[in-house]
Design a protein around this nucleic acid. Structure first.
Lengths: 206, 206, 206, 206
DNA sequence: CATGAATGAGACTTCATTCAT
DNA sequence: TATGAATGAAGTCTCATTCAT
């Protein structure tokens, strides 16, 4: 009976958005085993569908991956917008922006033992998909820094950096938070410390 | 007879360190095409040996890669030692240490379009090989920071960080220099700016 | 209700002879792309029906092809009958008979770049379906030759052939008209020349 | 013992010209089952090699087929040359030329139940490979007819045909010999009769 | 040691056919 | 009847690894 209900639930879910089911299964496997070591057969099995079914929803393995990347990019974009809308102080806003992008990616991809390969798999592809997100991300951070300067809190010049340069340096440093993080909490700690240190470096000198 | 001499010459030139020849060819190909897209056939051709010969020097493709990693680790280790021996000021020494590790890796691996995959290929493996190097690298940086504190130049406490924590944060931030670097010069610029900014953040507050 | 009416209209228009629609679409695709390169999906799309619908009218792809062949055979049979009924001279009648069979097939199949594969697809099948047609075709040609002999126009004996043998030889030679024809006009020219030459060869020697 | 010898023989043969072994096996299978119904696995099994071995000698299934076609074309070309060198009378020479091309192809390909598909498989390809052969074949036949005219034996004009046209018609008619032939002897009979009839049609009228 | 032909598991993809709706 | 999502067998091709010479 319960089984019957479950079956029906599965059926309803499977019929409607089997696509999402496949993407979930694929992300999971890609994260655990990497792109190339995950076969379409594996994905099909994990998603409880036949191999051929994958090709109804995605033209090829590459396109499946692309769809995954696109999904990720969309969520990051949404996160960034939501952060921008909240009224936050300079450091808090910058931290939130960095977390909106890096933290999200960390949770989805980077925490995987095969993150590197995933990101590497299709560099050109990633450029297309993540390029726009990166652009809007960078301009959000730049705006936040500018606000900090306007409010007299920050002064890149005294550190010998232009606003542009300061933005890039801050973002670059933040990327480092992923380097040796063991879990998400660790990642957040690292990110927070890097931001604190960097912003401290950007403060007006006495 | 003449043939015999030629053979011996060949042996001395290529036979003795054919291993090195193979490693060179492999690194080159891995950097250009990635681990999985480089076949043993490719490596053999590039090293001017037969496919079977590769298996005389390396038990498998994975072991060949491991040997490459080990070679890299040894050179980084040597670099670090040489930096420690030079008498440098705090910021200069820290920058030199970071460059000794990150810069060297950048030149060898990260500048490749397939860096990610290379590093990913064998994470566990990397742990074994790069773990010791990382440890000595970290302690070198920590010592340099400690020196800076002793000389009154730096004060992690005023940034709310312990010496340990400051070391980790600095290193993490430095890793970010690789994130979007387009070439080695760009990488060095990024690294220098990150270090400057971070050390500025670690200065004694007025 | 209105929907109901529409449905019925659709049924009258497409439902009644959806079978014919499918056959038309299939022949078109087979001619252009060949049997194996035409998928059931392609046929369904071209016929504006769902894939499953094909299997309501035809048990399998092979049976669909068989139905096509049967249709073709019926039309050839009809053509032959109509030629026999017309009162034509020997050469004209023979040419008309050959055109009724070969010309018709040329227009339908052989002019396709994938004729060979189509004819090959089911040789055994073709035997069943085209066997009777071939038989009646051959006897029509034989009768025409016989008439020519009776009228003193032809004399297979002087060419060293029996009537039977002459019939077979003539038909075989005519088949050659298809060999390198580039279009229907070319085919007809070839056929006419072959017939003229062959009948000339069957004339009474002086 | 005998087995042992056979094995060694096989080994010697296999090492030297496994390529030929594969081609033989492939031709055999293609003739019996057609191009598309013959899998690379089938060919490998028939040639007693592993699947991968096929790809050492041929880049793809298509290239394997192309090699087969090329081999065939070469042999036909050689046959034509050998016929031209023999001093034969008009009819005998023409028959020999037609047999050198059509007969040879018949033995190799056309006698197969899947001849049509084989020839169809790669029409463009065949054009490249058989085009030159066809050209030299046609010019040989044309020359033979011309000789017949010079010797006063033939007179295409009286049949309303130019030499060119007569050549094409003769060749086309000859192609028809393949149409319903059941075996090689039958094919030769048909060809002989078609040639006799056609040449009779080209004779000088009294 | 060196060679390179041979192997065969395994990857991606297609498509005729089925079946619940 | 009609639909079209789902199936899964089968096909082509790659490549790390072995082994007889």
């Amino acid at each position: 009976m319960a089984a019957r209900v479950n079956e029906e639930t599965a059926m309803k879910a499977g019929g409607a958005d089997k696509r999402a089911l496949i993407l979930d299964a694929a992300l999971d496997l890609f994260r655990h085993y990497g792109y190339r070591r995950t076969s379409m057969e594996d994905i099909a099995r994990a998603a409880n569908v036949a191999k051929g079914t994958l090709y109804i929803y995605f033209k090829s393995k590459d396109e499946l991956f692309e769809a995954l990347a696109r999904q990720l990019a969309e969520r990051v974009e949404a996160n960034l917008k939501s952060v921008a809308e909240r009224g936050l102080g300079t450091e808090a806003k910058i931290l939130a922006l960095l977390d909106a992008k890096l933290g999200f990616m960390y949770r989805w991809i980077l925490s995987s033992p095969h993150a590197a390969e995933l990101l590497d798999s299709k560099v050109e592809l990633s450029e297309d998909i993540f390029g726009p997100v990166d652009k809007s991300f960078r301009s959000s951070v730049a705006r936040a820094l500018k606000d900090g300067v306007r409010e007299g809190e920050l002064d890149p010049k005294s550190a010998g950096l232009s606003l542009e340069s300061a933005t890039d340096t801050l973002i670059a440093a933040a990327y480092g938070a992923e380097s040796g993080a063991v879990d998400e909490a660790d990642f957040r700690d690292r990110l927070a410390r890097i931001v604190r240190l960097s912003l401290r470096g950007l403060r007006k000198s006495a």
